[in-house]
Design a protein around this nucleic acid. Structure first.
Length: 400
DNA sequence: AAATGGCACAACCGCGGGTCA
DNA sequence: GTGACCCGCGGTTGTGCCATT
């Protein structure tokens, strides 16, 4: 079918916005909200199409936008999330406080991509260009497994990002509805929580949606050789009572956290999100768990995460079953040394540009000093640090 | 001082998904 | 089931600024 233009483009202004136009748009939205973008321009007295108004608002005028230079932490987060999510800028933006997808996209294209390229890292695959040299040994297999898991997590994060958006729609009503149940259940010290933050701006600061990845991080760092087995399970303690999701206007989760998606364990074998949230994204993209009509079937007790069996303690802290726990101490040491040093710490200048000199040891392509083992170490550290993004989440993360 | 090239960023374009009648 | 519409997303372009020659 033919697609009608979003608006009558005849006579509409294009190009940069003037301060007067910004003021008109701001004033209108502050008073009325944006409502239907298509109808907004005429109501606001703007000679723009609705799409242009929406973009101007979401990318520039919105009051909760953070502008200015990206911090080192933000840079690292972008790169790490890009390794997981690819060019899904909106999904990446959900994890970066007050940054728009457009801004992140521009920053990636103009800064970070070039930096990675100069380092000899493919900005698309996030693999070292000489990875193919490792193709004959098991190390590359491990790297491939890591990539596979990253793809898995990518799909999951994408679905979660979609959930976050969708959950906003019904956030207020759910808050009111669930407030009472929170108080009725929060007295139980053994209540476990799975919470998806619905607030885009807050989500990045608390990073509550990377639970499986976090668990995986522990597992990968502690026993990378175990990657051969892709289908172990994430499970919740059998001793734990039926999961009763709670919501909180403050309390456990803090004032700024607005949990909206809740899973209420039913007989310990199914998870139900209150309401009629569709879970098609999970079902189609991750092929891990079936969600039907809000029911996550048979998933609370055996949630496939790909690597290790994770047991949720009653306090919500994850503990690896089996022998992994004793190895966990290596996790942060491994993760902290790799990527950041590799990419960021070498660029201490204000402009954070890469050293162009041939003597830069980080530029392995040019120096030729890197052995296959070094590449492997880089890859391991690289992915570990990607995963370490999760472990670096603020302490108020409600997930664990 | 003028010309030129590169960079950074705002904005546009086209596509696809979701919704509704 | 179909078409129209709205909206969001990712890719691309246009433009202004700045450094260099």
């Amino acid at each position: 079918m033919g697609r009608t233009p979003c608006c009558d483009k005849v006579g509409l202004k294009k190009g940069p916005w003037t301060p007067e136009e910004d003021q008109k748009l701001l004033a209108y939205i502050e008073e009325h909200g944006h409502g239907c973008w298509r109808a907004l321009p005429s109501k606001a007295g703007l000679q723009r199409c609705g799409k242009s108004c929406r973009l101007r608002w979401t990318n520039y005028l919105r009051p909760d936008i953070k502008r200015g230079k990206f911090s080192l932490q933000e840079e690292q987060t972008i790169i790490q999330l890009h390794a997981l999510l690819g060019n899904r800028w909106s999904a990446i933006a959900t994890h970066l406080s007050k940054r728009t997808d457009n801004e992140i996209k521009n920053y990636w294209n103009t800064h970070l991509k070039k930096r990675l390229t100069k380092m000899g890292i493919d900005p698309i695959t996030h693999k070292h260009k000489n990875d193919t040299l490792l193709s004959s040994d098991g190390q590359s297999k491990t790297v491939a497994n890591l990539s596979h898991m990253a793809q898995w997590e990518s799909a999951r994060l994408e679905a979660e990002a979609r959930l976050v958006r969708e959950s906003k729609i019904r956030s207020h009503s759910l808050q009111n509805q669930l407030a009472s149940s929170m108080f009725s259940s929060s007295s139980s010290a053994s209540t476990s929580l799975i919470i998806i933050n619905n607030n885009k701006q807050e989500s990045s600061s608390s990073s509550p949606r990377l639970d499986i990845l976090k668990a995986w991080n522990n597992g990968v760092s502690n026993g990378i050789g175990d990657l051969e087995s892709p289908t172990s399970t994430l499970s919740f303690s059998e001793n734990a009572p039926p999961i009763m999701a709670t919501t909180s206007g403050g309390g456990i989760l803090g004032e700024n956290t607005i949990p909206m998606i809740e899973f209420v364990g039913c007989s310990g074998s199914s998870v139900k999100e209150e309401g009629d949230q569709e879970w098609k994204g999970y079902e189609s993209s991750t092929n891990l768990t079936e969600y039907k009509d809000g029911i996550m079937e048979n998933s609370m007790t055996t949630f496939t995460c790909g690597l290790h069996e994770l047991t949720m303690s009653m306090e919500g802290a994850p503990t690896w079953s089996g022998s992994h726990e004793s190895l966990r101490a290596n996790d942060h040491a491994i993760a902290e040394q790799g990527f950041t040093n590799l990419l960021l710490n070498t660029n201490s200048g204000d402009d954070r540009s890469l050293s162009e000199g041939g003597g830069d040891s980080n530029n392995r392509d040019d120096s030729g000093s890197g052995s296959g083992g070094d590449f492997y170490e880089d890859n391991k550290n690289y992915w570990n640090s990607i995963l370490n993004l999760v472990t670096s989440s603020p302490s108020n993360t409600p997930m664990f």
